[in-house]
């Protein structure tokens, strides 16, 4: 299984194109904007210290899946989780359980989490992200 990984975080310019790509990728529910993104581009307490991206680290024993009462999140082979949004009832336990803050609330209150599809890599202009074999 492939996973999304940081190739060189120092090259991140904070442009958010990865976030917009993530919101756009879902063919059944394509969205324009940031609010359906499972990845987040942030400054490091202000842009004078640079920027970085936060996304699922592909834990082998994902705590978010353990605390998910509806089994919307399930461990994924190779690390990380799969997300079945139809059964998610927006309890947000997973958001609290993720140590690196890589699960985000969507604008419809469901959650957005990286499922390592790699769609964002094609829209990262500076080679910050890459997809590799887990």
């Amino acid at each position: 299984m492939k996973i999304l990984r940081l190739a060189d975080v120092e090259k991140c310019v904070g442009c958010s194109l990865c976030m917009l790509a993530c919101s756009r990728k879902n063919v059944k529910n394509q969205r324009i904007g940031l609010g359906h993104s499972g990845i987040r581009a942030v400054s490091l307490s202000g842009f004078e210290r640079g920027a970085t991206v936060i996304f699922c680290h592909a834990c082998l024993e994902p705590p978010c899946a353990e605390v998910c009462p509806s089994k919307a999140l399930k461990p994924r082979k190779g690390g990380g989780v799969t997300y079945n949004e139809r059964v998610c009832f927006s309890c947000h336990n997973c958001i609290s359980a993720c140590k690196i803050g890589a699960i985000f609330e969507r604008d419809d209150e469901k959650i957005a989490v990286c499922i390592h599809c790699g769609y964002c890599v094609d829209f990262c202009p500076h080679g910050v992200l890459e997809v590799v074999e887990a």
Binding site: L17, S23, R24, V27, N29, Q30, R31, I32, G33, L34, G35, H36, E105, R106, D107, F123, P125
Partner: peptide
């Protein structure tokens, strides 16, 4: 602060034109 989104009127065309602009830019 905000995270509202909205759907495009034409998904396929949106992706195409988005990629076109992105490509010209980079």
């Amino acid at each position: 602060i905000g995270n509202k989104t909205y759907p495009p009127a034409d998904q396929k065309l949106y992706r195409e034109i988005y990629s076109e602009i992105y490509r010209i830019g980079v």
